[in-house]
Amino acid sequence: MSIQGHILEVRVEFGVNFKQSGAYVCIIYNNEVYQTSIAKDGGTSPRFHENIRIPLVDGLRELSIVVRRRGYFAEEVIATGKVQLDEVLREGKDHSLWPLQYQCRRTGATRSGGQIKLAMEYERPRVTATPCPQAPAAGSGFHPHGRPDFYPSTEFPPPTPPPRYVHPSFHSHPDYHYSYHAPPSPQPPSAPGSSAYSGYYYGHCRQG
């Protein structure tokens, strides 16, 4: 996880068994120097109780500590040390005593330069869940990846009913007259020789 630009809160609490009194603390990070004021009390175990805000940089997880003292002619380095930031970045806080050392000028040997108490706190960024995009309405033609919707909606409007068919009745025919004639009733067939024609012919013949 990136720490670029996030703020590390460092409270310089106190020192323990410094070589000399009247010291102040410099914290070096990313070529920037952050320093406290000169301790007025405590002697070789001075109290500082000062807060420093340090912008973090990716890939740089170490502070350099330099304890200095102002002499009559020049400033003197009385102790140095390294502070690792892994725990505070992982847990969000680290209140520890860190060892210091100094180098003897005559022999060049490294000796203990006391300890320094730092209260470091780091607010880890909160990871917010990204809401899932809502599914588009069916048949809208929208695709979350910019592709057309090849599967249109299967919902169709109800079919339009066909026009009602009315069979033309004889009452609506324009040439039909509304007069009704009953059909003639059928006549029973006449016996042979008994028809009107046959009687007429027979009488006519007899008269002749």
Rank of each mutant, 00 (worst) to 15 (best):
E32K: 10
V33T: 15
V33C: 12
Y34H: 15
Y34D: 04
Q35Y: 10
Q35T: 04
S37I: 06
S37Y: 12
I38K: 10
I38Q: 08
I38V: 14
A39F: 03
A39E: 06
A39P: 03
K40H: 12
K40D: 15
D41E: 12
D41P: 01
G42C: 07
G43V: 00
G43H: 04
G43P: 05
G43E: 07
T44K: 11
T44M: 11
S45E: 02
S45G: 08
S45T: 11
S45L: 01
S45F: 09
P46V: 03
R47K: 07
R47I: 09
R47P: 05
H49Y: 14
H49W: 10
E50H: 06
E50W: 02
E50L: 09
E50G: 00
N51C: 00
N51H: 05
N51W: 06
I52A: 06
R53C: 09
R53T: 09
R53W: 10
I54R: 03
I54S: 04
I54P: 03
P55I: 00
P55E: 01
P55T: 00
P55K: 02
L56W: 04
L56V: 06
L56I: 05
V57T: 08
V57D: 11
D58I: 06
D58T: 07
G59S: 02
G59L: 01
G59C: 07
L60N: 08
R61Q: 13
R61D: 12
R61L: 12
R61A: 13
R61W: 11
E62A: 11
E62V: 07
L63S: 06
L63I: 10
S64D: 14
S64H: 12
S64E: 11
I65Y: 00
I65S: 02
I65D: 00
V66C: 12
V66K: 09
V67I: 15
V67G: 01
V67C: 05
V67Q: 02
R68E: 13
R68P: 05
R69Q: 15
R69H: 13
R70V: 14
R70I: 13
R70P: 04
Y72L: 14
Y72K: 15
Y72A: 11
Y72R: 08
F73W: 11
F73P: 03
F73Q: 13
F73E: 13
A74P: 01
E75I: 06
E75R: 10
E75K: 13
E75G: 13
E76A: 09
E76I: 11
E76C: 08
V77G: 02
V77E: 15
V77K: 08
V77W: 01
I78A: 02
I78K: 01
A79W: 00
T80P: 01
T80E: 11
G81I: 02
G81D: 05
G81S: 08
G81Y: 04
K82H: 12
K82Y: 10
K82N: 03
Q84E: 15
Q84L: 13
Q84N: 14
Q84D: 14
L85V: 13
L85Y: 04
D86G: 07
D86R: 09
D86A: 13
D86T: 12
D86N: 15
D86L: 11
E87A: 10
V88Q: 06
V88S: 05
V88N: 03
L89G: 02
L89D: 01
